[in-house]
Amino acid sequence: MQDALAVITVVVVGVMVGVEFAVAVFVNPILDRLPDDGALAARGAGARVLGRVMPFWYIGSMTLGAVWVVMARGDDGLPFVVTGALLLVVSVMMSAVLLVPVGSRVAARPQGGAPEDRKERVGRRDRLHHVRVGVIVLASTLFAVALTR
């Protein structure tokens, strides 16, 4: 049972990392090449879609990590699982406190005209997103290491 849980956790977190990495490294830079209104409209649409899915994915990943911690008591990989699970908690906190408020403003933006501070807001959000991606990449890596122990 623990082995199945570990594999499911690695897959679920790994796919989440892939989505977040793709958004950070490929999708957002492509969208930023669109004219201001187009870029904001596309980011808003993306924020609305991902804003519905990602909370469940993040919390589900964090829950899988927590259950793995409980089941891995006494295993060689426990320190890796604990650290990975804690990093997922950090990523959820970062999302709730730092990223969701900015994403909600982008998703709720009225049509027409870009706000004057658009570049600063988007730049700040992207920098925070890159940090969060780094956090979940590290968590995923630690889970993969734990799986092999």
Rank of each mutant, 00 (worst) to 15 (best):
D3N: 12
D3E: 15
A4W: 08
V7H: 07
I8N: 00
I8G: 01
V13P: 04
V15C: 04
M16N: 04
V17S: 07
A22S: 11
V23R: 10
A24V: 13
A24Q: 11
V25M: 15
V27W: 13
I30F: 15
I30A: 14
I30S: 15
I30Y: 15
D32H: 10
D32V: 10
R33C: 06
L34R: 14
P35A: 14
D36W: 14
D36N: 12
D37A: 15
D37Q: 13
L40I: 12
A41N: 11
A42E: 10
A45D: 09
G46D: 07
A47P: 10
R48L: 04
V49F: 09
L50R: 10
L50K: 05
L50N: 05
L50M: 12
R52L: 15
R52S: 13
V53P: 00
F56G: 08
W57F: 14
I59K: 04
L64C: 02
W68A: 02
V70C: 01
M71I: 02
R73K: 05
R73Y: 11
G74P: 02
G74R: 00
D75L: 03
D75M: 00
D75I: 00
D76G: 13
G77Q: 07
P79S: 08
F80G: 00
V81R: 02
V81N: 05
A85M: 03
L88P: 10
S91E: 08
M93E: 09
M94T: 05
M94S: 10
S95R: 11
S95E: 01
V97L: 12
L98C: 12
V100N: 04
G103M: 06
G103T: 08
S104N: 14
S104W: 09
R105C: 06
A107N: 04
R109N: 12
P110V: 15
G112A: 03
G113Q: 06
P115G: 01
E116S: 12
E116M: 08
R118A: 07
K119S: 14
K119G: 10
E120Y: 07
E120A: 11
R121K: 08
V122F: 11
D126K: 14
R127K: 11
L128E: 08
H129P: 11
H130Q: 14
V131E: 03
V133H: 04
V133Q: 04
V135Y: 04
V137G: 02
S140T: 08
L142N: 07
F143W: 00
V145N: 00
L147N: 07
L147Q: 05
T148P: 03
